[in-house]
Amino acid sequence: MADRQEWSDEDIKRRRRRSIAIALILVGMVVLFYVITLVRLGGNVADRVI
């Protein structure tokens, strides 16, 4: 892939859309892991022995 010489406009558009899709997936995963952490911790934080 590195030896490709020229990018057509369509290629550039596709790359941009792919990059946006990857960004959205990454943001989605961050949000999901954050929410999962809250769910898994749940009331256990409040109930812990101090």
Binding site: M1, W7, S8, E10, D11, R14, R15, R17, R18, A21
Partner: peptide, 12 residues
Amino acid sequence: DVPATEPSVSDY
């Protein structure tokens, strides 16, 4: 066989 164009999101 290396793609001549960039694959799109729908291809994946």
